[in-house]
Amino acid sequence: MIDNDKMMQHVRTHPFPLVFATISGAHLYGFPSPDSDFDLRGVHRLPLQTVVGLDDGEQTIEKEGIYDGLEIDLVTHDAKKFFKLMLRRNGYVLEQIFSPLVVFTTPEHAELKSIAANCITRHHAHHYLGFAATQWKLFGKESSPRVKPLLYVYRVLLTGIHLMRTGVVEANLVTLNAEAKLPYIDDLISQKREGPEQGTLDAADLRFHQSEYERLTRELEAAYDASALPEMPSARDRLNDLLVRLRLQR
């Protein structure tokens, strides 16, 4: 269960005003373990006097530790840095914007969701293909294969396939599998949710999972080829306008 009151302490003590703060990671993906930490992500707004000077200011704020019994990993980016990431094929920042696990929001966050829809392109498939390949390598290198990196592989591939086909950012593996109907996903999620964060697989069928990884990779590649999503984002002017207004806020 997510304790928003405890999460809000990080909003109130943040050195800069926040545009939004949402939860990412295993809680967003639908398979937190009992001892999973909370990945708090968001956008902060540097003051005007900082950004007009020679120094860049604190583009990224990172803080992690145990606070009131919760292990929290906080990462926020300044609005300009975050908006530039939105204009690239970075699915991770889009997942943060659209995360339904909202700790703190503003009217600008709602506007950002509207703008973000025009940042989605078919080339976001490359983000998910690359992320899945990295996670598969991590899974394959382990002497005792863990459930966590394997679930990340499937989550990333299904998110990419869904995005290419629908233009909708969906990061929750439970929701994604309601459509994909992969019979082994529910068992893997149950192992992850009910066991420790570093839980391992019992007699993992590596050949089977490699076959599924390769099959879903091909499916994502095919979805990319067939996607009707645009080639380029069309949100730059709106992001620029929002950034100027954020900078001018007191």
Rank of each mutant, 00 (worst) to 15 (best):
D3L: 15
D3V: 15
K6I: 15
M7I: 07
M8K: 12
Q9A: 11
V11A: 14
T13V: 00
T13E: 10
H14W: 03
V19G: 08
T22E: 05
S24I: 00
S24D: 03
P32V: 13
S33M: 05
P34A: 14
D35T: 13
D39Y: 03
L46P: 01
L46V: 10
L48G: 06
L48H: 11
Q49F: 08
V51G: 02
L54P: 02
K63W: 04
L70N: 13
I72N: 02
I72D: 05
L74H: 03
K81M: 06
K81T: 06
F83M: 09
R88E: 12
G91A: 11
L94D: 00
L101E: 07
V102R: 06
V102G: 08
F104C: 07
P107N: 15
H123E: 10
H123A: 06
G130K: 10
G140Y: 00
P145M: 08
L150A: 09
L151G: 04
T166L: 10
T166N: 09
V169R: 00
E170L: 11
A171D: 06
L173T: 07
E179I: 10
K181I: 11
L182T: 05
Y184I: 08
I185L: 08
I185T: 09
D187E: 11
E194W: 13
P196G: 12
P196E: 10
Q198K: 14
T200N: 12
L201R: 08
D202F: 09
E219W: 04
E219C: 03
A226P: 05
L229R: 01
P233W: 02
R238W: 01
R238V: 01
R238T: 02
D241T: 13
D241L: 13
V244S: 10
R247E: 09
